[in-house]
Amino acid sequence: MAKKAKKIDIRSDGREFDELREIKIQAGVLDQADGSARVDWGITMKRIAVSEKTYNKVESLREQFYIIPRGKGGKKYLVDVPAKLLDKIGDEFGDYEVVGEHFKGNVAIVAVHGPREPIPRHVADPYRAVLRFRYTMAPFSVPERKRPAPGRREIEISKVSREALQGVVFANEYPMTAIDIFAELLSADAGTRVTAITAASVALADAGIPMKDLVAAVAVGRAYGHLVADLTKFEEDAPDAVDFPMAVVPRTEEITLAQMDGRIAKKDLDELVELGIKKAKEISALQRQALKEKYQRVVENEQ
């Protein structure tokens, strides 16, 4: 059935397989921090009202597409569909009406305090600044309320994130100090650590910390038979899922974070690394733009 085969070649949320989700970055969002950034990283979901007949079809579509049924809304039935997917397979839903839209993704706010005198004092290094990274998630950031205290996952992410950034900072220019990075995820939807690292680079630059480059991070992997860039939760849950978050120094293509979950052949792995580097460069352009926009805003406000 030709039509069905064609559908399989469409990504579960309508993006191209190597396409990033929508990423919005803002620099300098907090007053008390020395540097800060906010990153919104996700997709636009459209809420559509469909007929009962269509609604009953949705369950089968859900096997390969990131579609979420939302129960009854008045006389019609509501379904959440990624905006890009709706553009591609809209006719699957018959006569539908768009009744709303919302953003489904990660929202991270990262603050940098430093370089400053470390507390406790004994962590100070006479030769260079010590980076500390504390990754936390708001209890309401995930579908099931998470207890506020950082768990093992957060502690591991804090460690690898710090290690992704420490190497690019010219830490020797600030001996005996600490550079504290606080990353809070207010909303989470796959790729939280790459969102945090991407935001942290911007926050570090915003604080005036000298670095070799802005580190950009992205998760690449495999889902439903395709190698993909920037997995959604739906893709992370695929039976053949491979999730490979990476952080890259865009100028030199060096990799400062690499973690992987899944089972994959080396050939595919090499391809994924290339894909990750390419995407990191795209993200790096967004990071730079955000930092420069901060000064644009000032110019506009004063005129």
């Binding site: 070799k212 480059d213 100028r251 930092l291």
Partner: peptide
């Protein structure tokens, strides 16, 4: 922003830059 190339010419280096692969690059 950090990581942007300022110039590839041979110049004297002031603060805020470093050199790699013959390129003068911004640090801050």
């Amino acid at each position: 922003t950090p990581g942007e190339v300022i110039t590839e010419e041979r110049v004297k280096l002031g603060p805020g830059v470093y050199v790699q692969d013959g390129k003068v690059i911004a640090k801050v």
